[in-house]
Design a binder for these strands. Structure first.
Lengths: 258, 258
DNA sequence: TATAAAGGTGAATCCGCAC
DNA sequence: AGTGCGGATTCACCTTTAT
């Protein structure tokens, strides 16, 4: 089932896959829905559970349990010489980072995706939230070998060692997948440039890559463009369809950038 | 005991302070770096790494317990309309961020200190680790009021809304405190520009600021320069002495930058 | 005295293989 | 697992020394 997007919850699909199957994992997990609802509440209008610490804790606990399940499975299907990337924002990345450390993952870098065109803070109550964090980890602290194409990254960076800060625009323009009405097909489509750096830095041609939250299929598209194999897992059939449609088209503009 | 550096472990000193005393807290706790071995540059010179006793913890649990203690006390002595900043690296910030969320703190921003001159990765096995993270939090999600001098930050940023990425050099040159032999007096002295942004963005003149890990006294120095009051807590007497010595000198170059 | 060259250094979880 | 060794490996900025 190589080079496919499987429809299903990764917590159910991953247990059907053998130990040490993948050379690389890229995971872009969802936020806790309950947390997001809390975030979206109108300012200063408090919802019933404000003082209910139990409710709050149960929200975190539910998200933590969800992450623990898919992360444990990811660790199992990752080769002992493989690495894993997990992207998130300040809403979830601290919980995930702490959990990964406790599981035995060893952080290699905390990459900062520095958005060149972030959404401004309209009310002027905070600094413009301009980054997302991508954790790059090996499977254990003792792990000796992993793929890092240092010289290629250095070349991409004009001959100087590439830093952990990646200045990349949000996915907009022609790259952004939209329906006939111009409505974006996926709310959090990641830019190809981001996946290009992930895949070219930490895999070799022919390697097998897993994306347990495939979404619009950026990981699969970039993997295909660069001769890597992939397996995507995606819960919603409509996103599976979108990803397959996307994979039909060659994207030479990615290859031009090498 | 205003505008003083108290010598002692903040876990013992803070319980002697009344509830809701401080308008702002800036905390720069030990990072628990857990360095594995010595590191040499390509020219074979040894890197003078952080190897202080105050940064040694036996395991995650010990570090977590330590952080839980000082964070709980900080939350108690912070005014209900105050905010707290905590700086760390990928070695500790995920543990701290998760813990703070669980305690009820509400993250306003995850500021990225983007070092303009970070130490390179000499072995070429990772990306240059170029950032530290500073969490800016209010005391609870329900908290309506807190100080954010939006217009001043905008002015500092050339008229555009300031982003959560702060490009600031490491503390070197004349600003770095050194003994007569040229040896750095503190292994992790923070740049004044960093504290300037923290203090000017989130306090007003006359506010009272706590730094529970005072170290070389950068927080106190910048607070004094900008007419804020401070209380520092520092475990080691030698650093207390260094900070007081530093406070004797006016630093007009900070004020020039307004 | 001015300019150029050389040297030092910073919160870092920094090699891989053979024996 | 401990040791030894071959080989690949650095950026920005400041200070000191040399021309």
């Amino acid at each position: 089932m190589i080079n496919q997007i499987v429809c299903g919850d990764c917590r159910q699909v991953l247990p059907t896959i053998a130990d040490q199957t993948f050379d690389l994992i890229f995971a872009d997990p969802p936020y806790n829905l309950q947390l997001q609802q809390e975030l979206r509440r109108p300012n200063n209008t408090l919802v019933d559970a404000v003082n209910d610490d139990w409710d709050k804790f149960s929200d975190f606990a539910e998200y933590d349990n969800f992450c623990e399940e898919w992360l444990m499975q990811c660790r199992r299907v990752l080769k002992d010489n493989g690495t894993i990337w997990v992207i998130g924002s300040y809403h979830n990345i601290f919980r995930i980072g702490k959990m990964m450390m406790d599981m035995g993952f060893w952080i290699l870098n905390d990459i900062q995706w520095y958005k060149t065109n972030p959404m401004p803070n309209f009310r002027g109550v905070r600094f413009t939230n301009a980054t997302e964090t991508i954790l790059w980890c090996k499977k254990s602290s003792e792990q000796k070998k992993y793929t890092f194409n240092y010289q290629l990254m250095k070349k991409f960076n004009g001959g100087k060692q590439m830093k952990s800060v990646w200045e990349i625009p949000l996915c907009t323009g022609k790259e952004r997948l939209r329906d006939d009405a111009g409505k974006k097909l996926h709310s959090t489509q990641k830019p190809q440039e981001l996946l290009k750096r992930v895949i070219l830095s930490s895999t070799n041609p022919g390697d097998l890559i897993l994306d347990p939250f495939s979404g619009s299929g950026t990981t699969a598209a970039v993997a295909k463009a660069f001769g890597r194999n992939f397996i995507g897992i995606e819960k919603e059939q409509k996103y599976v369809d979108i990803a397959y449609e996307r994979l039909k088209f060659i994207q030479p503009e990615i290859l031009d950038l090498i």
